[in-house]
């Protein structure tokens, strides 16, 4: 029993001391990020807020008319967290737990994760029927704004 307890305490200590080196997760954005817009390259005409929330929660993979959609995620960070909180009300840990359930059960594919905001812009501009989100001031004239999440 003594050895067991020792091994246990050692493991916990080892894990706890290595944790700070890894850095904290990005669960709490400090400054409020810029307003976020949901954008598409074109082709998609309208998107309701409810549809958008269902898409980004993995509850649907197509638009109402059956058009399959490719979702583009920003890299993990305050802009992505702000977007999910505004649209779905879920915090980053909830969002990741939800997507890991959906993806690893083989129900849906996860959004394509862009390496950076500028890559997200490129992917959105180039991929047919792509839907993504960007800070309002980062969108450009190749993209169409479907929804503005600033109202909430």
């Amino acid at each position: 029993m003594h050895n067991t307890l020792g091994a246990f305490v050692f493991s916990v200590l080892a894990l706890m001391t290595t944790a700070p080196l890894a850095g904290p997760p990005e669960t709490q954005g400090k400054a409020r990020p810029a307003e976020v817009v949901i954008v598409t390259s074109g082709g998609i005409k309208v998107l309701s807020r409810e549809e958008a929330a269902q898409l980004f929660l993995g509850q649907r993979t197509t638009l109402r008319d059956g058009t399959p959609v490719t979702l583009i995620d920003l890299p993990a960070g305050p802009a992505r967290n702000h977007f999910y909180r505004e649209l779905t009300g879920k915090n980053p840990v909830q969002v990741r737990a939800n997507w890991s359930r959906l993806v690893f059960s083989g129900r849906v594919r996860p959004p394509l994760e862009a390496g950076s905001q500028s890559e997200a812009l490129e992917l959105l501009a180039r991929t047919p029927n792509a839907i993504g989100y960007l800070p309002a001031n980062a969108s450009d004239n190749r993209l169409k704004i479907l929804l503005n999440l600033s109202g909430s």
Partner: peptide, 25 residues
């Protein structure tokens, strides 16, 4: 031609390293 991002093979994964200790020998 630019390959369609959506049709590509994607790989991902999950793992747990877990240990459990019982108080009775």
């Amino acid at each position: 031609p630019q390959p369609d991002e959506t049709s590509r093979f994607r790989i991902s994964g999950f793992a747990t390293l877990g240990m459990v200790a019982t108080g009775s020998r």
